[in-house]
């Protein structure tokens, strides 16, 4: 791994991602937790740019920071007295150890033997012929590719919207 501009950017974005994630799982104050989540997901967007997936990076910022963050902050405010809760964690050390073991399993069991050992067989990495947003648009609506998942995604979104409205609205009725 030679040391250049991209490597520096990769290290910075990885630290942002992982640091933000640690902030999310350890924060006491949930509003700050939401901000940490945004920091972490912003780091993921940066990593996507490094992977030349600029469309997905913009979507990441748009969907997560623009919409899901707002939804989370609304939900945090709607379920109040969160900061004063004393019961924040359960069995911290057991869970730290089990998550750690999981990471070691990933690293030693899958990533190292499969992806490091076979690194030489990878395709050369260039930007030539990279699939573009236009290709994605063609694929999403062409009959032989993703038109069915595309419509099902629309159906799923509609179902989620109606379902969430029904659930949240019931709560509102009882609240009044």
């Amino acid at each position: 791994m030679e040391f250049n501009f991209i490597t520096v950017a990769f290290i910075v974005f990885s630290l942002i991602t992982l640091g933000g994630a640690i902030g999310v799982v350890t924060c006491i104050n949930l509003f700050r937790g939401t901000i940490w989540l945004m920091v972490s997901l912003f780091g993921v967007a940066g990593l996507m740019v490094l992977l030349s997936a600029e469309f997905l990076a913009a979507v990441q910022v748009l969907v997560y920071i623009g919409a899901i963050a707002i939804l989370f902050t609304f939900a945090v405010m709607l379920t109040r007295s969160i900061t004063s809760d004393k019961m924040r964690f359960t069995r911290v050390w057991v869970n730290v150890i089990s998550a750690g073991i999981l990471f070691v399993l990933f690293a030693l069991g899958v990533i190292y033997p499969v992806w490091v050992a076979n690194a030489a067989t990878h395709f050369p990495v260039t930007d030539a012929g990279l699939a573009t947003t236009t290709d994605l648009g063609v694929a999403l609506v062409s009959g032989s590719q993703f038109v069915l998942p595309f419509e099902v995604a629309g159906l799923l979104l509609t179902a989620a919207m109606i379902g969430a409205i029904v659930i949240a609205r019931d709560a509102d009725d009882e609240g009044n």
Binding site: T134, G137, R169
Partner: peptide, 24 residues
């Protein structure tokens, strides 16, 4: 407030899928 945010989220994701469609 939550319901406005929710509908916005759903439309936001819809637009994300529609942008490639519009470009192509």
């Amino acid at each position: 407030y939550y319901i406005y945010g929710l509908i916005f989220l759903v439309f936001d994701v819809e637009m994300v899928l529609l942008f490639p469609w519009a470009v192509a």
